[in-house]
Simulated scan of single mutants.
Amino acid sequence: MKTYLVPIDFSAAAEHAAEFAAALSHQTEVEHIILLNAYYVSMYETILPNPDMVLVREEEVEQNAAERQRNLEKYAEKLQKKVRPGVKITTHLNRTHLLRAVVENAISKNADLVILGSKGNSSNSDAKIGSHVVKIAKACPVPVIVVPPVYGIEDINRVVVACDFNKVTEAAPLASLIKVLNRRKFNPLVVNIDNKAGAAEGEAEKIAEGTALYDTLKPYHPKYYFINHPDIINGILHFANQHDAQIVIALPHKYSFLQSLLHTSISQQLLESSAVPVLLLK
């Protein structure tokens, strides 16, 4: 993964996600981090007054854009001191909705990964990241990492891979996972919800044997687990907490027991409840 796209709305949560991206650069082969700020001004705001009879002038829009660009560049200078030597940081200002800006820039700039905060500053009308998280995770064509503001940034050693052993019947959906694990010293903990109480220790690996999942991950020496929990999301997060994992990785929902992961209610529960970053693969 050579390029990270990091939406920045200047909220504490967004800057925390950027700090995570900087820390992650020391463990990965990223070469370029793009700080993206998106803001939208409807053309009607410049030709029609609002209910308070205030008309937004084009000069004010341009002044706002210039100030945002200055803030972006100032923050980029600060972040540059925290990334791995050789990693380039650039900024980009988009006068459009955040969702559209992220999707379009992920494509046009060949981003491999989008990293964003799970919450924004709701008191600030410009801080849209929190309310757009689920939509971005659903629409973005590349993997997305959502970083909770409570997460204490540290090196990633243990990763929880959430998937359904039986549904991963081919290696293709694992390609993006291998991009994450390849040449990293990560310890994968592969988990599945066990709907049969009392699964014997070691049974998870036996069931996984012979599957595409097992063969593909074998070089990384993963450990396999069943999670016996009535609530899938809480089960995964409780497991991650118990094993002191630094990130939860979910395979594309077609290959996961999280069939409705990208349905708004489930996604919101996962992203809002997690105390560790969640990586949604594509």
Results as ranks from 00 to 15, higher is better:
2 K>A: 01
11 S>R: 11
11 S>H: 04
13 A>M: 00
13 A>C: 11
15 E>C: 02
18 A>Y: 10
19 E>T: 07
19 E>R: 15
24 L>P: 07
26 H>Q: 06
29 E>Y: 07
34 I>H: 00
35 L>E: 02
37 N>T: 13
38 A>K: 06
40 Y>H: 11
41 V>T: 14
41 V>F: 09
45 E>Y: 08
54 V>R: 13
56 V>Q: 05
58 E>N: 09
58 E>M: 11
63 Q>N: 14
64 N>W: 08
67 E>L: 14
70 R>Q: 13
76 A>V: 03
78 K>P: 00
84 R>E: 07
86 G>K: 09
90 T>C: 03
92 H>Q: 14
94 N>D: 10
106 A>Q: 00
106 A>M: 00
111 A>F: 00
113 L>P: 03
117 G>V: 10
118 S>R: 11
118 S>Y: 02
119 K>I: 10
120 G>S: 09
121 N>Q: 05
124 N>Q: 12
128 K>L: 15
129 I>V: 15
135 K>P: 01
136 I>S: 06
138 K>V: 04
141 P>D: 02
143 P>K: 02
143 P>F: 01
150 V>I: 07
154 E>H: 15
154 E>L: 05
155 D>G: 07
155 D>S: 13
157 N>H: 10
158 R>H: 14
159 V>P: 05
161 V>D: 05
175 A>E: 05
177 L>D: 02
181 L>D: 07
184 R>L: 11
185 K>Q: 10
185 K>Y: 03
186 F>W: 13
191 V>Y: 01
193 I>M: 13
197 A>S: 14
201 E>W: 08
207 I>G: 00
208 A>S: 06
208 A>G: 06
209 E>K: 15
211 T>S: 15
213 L>M: 06
215 D>V: 09
219 P>Y: 07
220 Y>R: 12
228 N>D: 13
229 H>M: 03
232 I>M: 12
233 I>F: 04
238 H>V: 01
240 A>Y: 09
240 A>V: 05
243 H>Q: 12
248 V>R: 10
249 I>K: 08
252 P>R: 09
253 H>P: 13
257 F>W: 02
261 L>T: 04
261 L>W: 09
266 I>K: 11
266 I>N: 08
266 I>Q: 10
268 Q>K: 15
280 L>D: 01
281 L>I: 04
282 K>N: 14
